[in-house]
Design a protein around this nucleic acid. Structure first.
Lengths: 112, 112
DNA sequence: AGAGAATATACCCGCAAAGGAATTTTCGAA
DNA sequence: TTCGAAAATTCCTTTGCGGGTATATTCTCT
């Protein structure tokens, strides 16, 4: 998992942009207006999202239309999926950890 | 979606901690050692992960055992799931956006 | 009670990242 | 080719965050 994607999503305004784009592609101006951002900040955030591969741009005349990139979310999803194993196989059992600890220490622990 | 969870995961060391804990619960010392972190940094990162609800602690004698929290990942998963609709319903079509634009402008655009 | 572990906190420093304002670039239309 | 929109980039300032080191806290065992 790349932390760039997560970093990009971890900023409130950027997360809002992503949520907004769920409804479909939008231009920079529309995004800025709907979120109460100033145009430069909107552009900057979009740049970061773009660099992280979360969104992609299409130039249409004067406008730049931004939309979500499927693959970014697929990757996130794949990563999350790899955690299901943890719960399914109960890899997070505290008791197991303690037993493991026991066997490691063995007799040791009270200086021989 | 809360940005606190994402922020917590967006830092390389913390993400590594999470990856590490996939294998099961670990104490602070073990985490620090395996990742080449100094104990205070490990503790700080764990604090942040804990505050974000990504991990949980259990005190065992002198040690603090950290493990992943199922629900944090469930929430992430649920949020991601809400994006599937975007692709399934092709809400990201650029053409649709342009048509929408057309109808909005209608006749207007070249000052009447 | 005292010593020594494992861990958490506090304090300081440097830097990266976010906001604001101004400026530049790009494109379409007249 | 000039004008005016839409958007990107630049520069500046501030602040939050991560690393480093030292110190406090907590627990165990003797």
């Amino acid at each position: 998992m790349k932390t760039t994607t997560l970093r990009a999503l971890a900023e409130p305004n950027r997360l809002q942009i992503v949520e907004l784009l769920r409804g479909g592609p939008l231009s920079v101006g529309e995004i800025a207006e709907r979120l109460g951002l100033r145009q430069p900040q909107a552009s900057k955030h979009l740049r970061i999202l773009s660099d992280a591969g979360v969104v992609e741009v299409h130039a249409v005349a004067n406008r730049r239309i931004y939309k979500l990139r499927h693959s970014a979310f697929q990757e996130l999803d794949a990563w999350l999926a790899s955690f299901r194993r943890v719960w399914e196989e109960k890899l997070d059992s505290l008791d197991d950890y303690l037993e493991e600890l026991q066997s490691k220490n063995g007799n040791r622990e009270g200086k021989p």
